Amino acid sequence: MVQHTEKRCPFSGALYKEAEAFVRTGHGELGTPEAEVARRLGQIEAAIRQEGNYAHSTEELAHGARMAWRNANRCIGRLFWNRMHVFDERGCETEGQVYEALLRHIEFATNGGEIRPAITLFKPEDSDGGEPIRIWNHQLIRYAGYETENGIVGDPASLSFTKACMELGWCGEGTDFDVLPLVIQVRGRTPRWFPIPPELVLEVPLTHPSADLFGSFRAKWYAVPIISDMALEIGGIRYPAAPFNGWYMETEIGARNLADEFRYNLIPLVARQLGLDMSSNSTLWKDRALLELNVAVLHSFRQAGVSIVDHHTAAQQFKMFQRNEEKDGREVTGRWSWLIPPLSPALTHVFHSSFEDKTVMPGFLAQKRPYE
């Protein structure tokens, strides 16, 4: 007679400890009765003993994701952490299903320009560390970068990923603003690329209210920054595919993406267009050009009806977030170098503040790029 033995896994006390910390904190914030918390912890312990892992409920997934935004040390926009919409896409099995879910995220977040914060969560990491789903893109929407005989065309930050896309069979038009495809990998198989329908990509042509900053260069930027290469960890469970978005602060575009020398490097062009004296650093031509470039970004997004926040308002919102957290008895952690805006930081209270840059879970974690 064949005897069937019940499958059991070595009990992971470390995983249970992380799960317990999350469940007690998260359910405490949600107002879950203590008896229900105890029952839930019993379920989790049994699952870990049986399978070596456990699954979050829909409510735990949603609140855990919002807590991760609240704990994001590099984000100045955390005041709105509890407004994030959570898409539970753990049922996706194929590249095509993941692709469709990502398109739904882009459409929902874009919302005709009235940007909505959102996160989409796919299958968590296996108990043995395997990754069911991985999104290769740094952001779901980003521009390609090409090395040419005449220098780099497009976004230099995208060079390696653009090359990886081309090796997979994608071919862009070779302009400064080619939208890259979505690259999805399932269960370690060869990744597949999918185009983003142009009608889903809202872009804002950039103009200045009173000057021609760009000449013949047709500057523009996309409306929604959807970070897609970070993992989300909740209660010891790691989600390697968890794209999320808020909305832009103008300096992200005007003082970094378009201004950095290792990105689009438009400051010299803007300075020439403004007729500034570029003979010496002491004329502060870089500062003046940087300011007007940010004016153009704010002006253009508002003219187009696309959500954006200026860095002074964002700092005021962060101060409100700090007060709310203090009221709820939580310490605000942060990375000072990321929280200060790259334009006129000393004019905000953040510059004169200090924060402990420690990791608090749930949280977002950097991952190694699979194509590098």
Results as ranks from 00 to 15, higher is better:
Y16T: 02
E233T: 15
E107K: 11
H311Y: 14
E93F: 01
V350F: 01
L343Q: 08
R189Y: 00
G151K: 10
R256Y: 13
R218H: 07
I237T: 08
I340L: 03
C9I: 07
W336I: 08
V224I: 15
I226Y: 01
A296W: 10
R134V: 15
H312K: 11
L274G: 06
I119A: 12
K358N: 10
I115R: 05
G112M: 09
R189N: 12
V23P: 01
I227Y: 07
M278C: 13
G305C: 09
L266D: 00
S280Y: 02
R49N: 06
T283V: 02
I119N: 04
A271N: 07
K327M: 12
I196T: 02
I227D: 04
F161V: 03
E326V: 06
H349S: 14
D178H: 09
G113F: 01
A271W: 05
M84C: 06
L284V: 00
L298A: 10
V360I: 15
S12Y: 00
E149G: 08
W69S: 04
T175I: 06
F355Y: 15
G42H: 02
T25S: 13
T207E: 14
R90E: 06
T190L: 14
W338F: 13
A223D: 08
E203M: 10
S216T: 14
F161K: 09
R142E: 12
N111S: 14
N281E: 15
H352I: 05
L182D: 00
Q97C: 03
K286T: 09
A296D: 04
F194M: 07
N73Q: 06
I106K: 02
S282I: 00
I48L: 06
L180T: 06
I226L: 10
G246A: 14
P205C: 00
R323Q: 14
E131A: 07
G31E: 09
P341I: 08
S279L: 07
R288H: 13
N137G: 06
V224H: 08
Y239R: 05
F214M: 03
A346E: 14
V204G: 03
Q43M: 12
H27K: 10
N324L: 15
T348W: 07
L232M: 05
K220Q: 13
L61D: 02
I234E: 02
T175C: 05
G52P: 04
N82Y: 12
G145A: 07
T251A: 05
A211V: 07
P197Q: 00
H138S: 14
R66Y: 12
S353L: 11
L258P: 02
V86F: 00
A21P: 11
M278V: 10
R218F: 00
F301P: 02
L266I: 01
P181F: 09
R335F: 11
N257F: 07
H299W: 13
Y222H: 14
K220M: 12
I119T: 13
L168R: 12
M320Y: 01
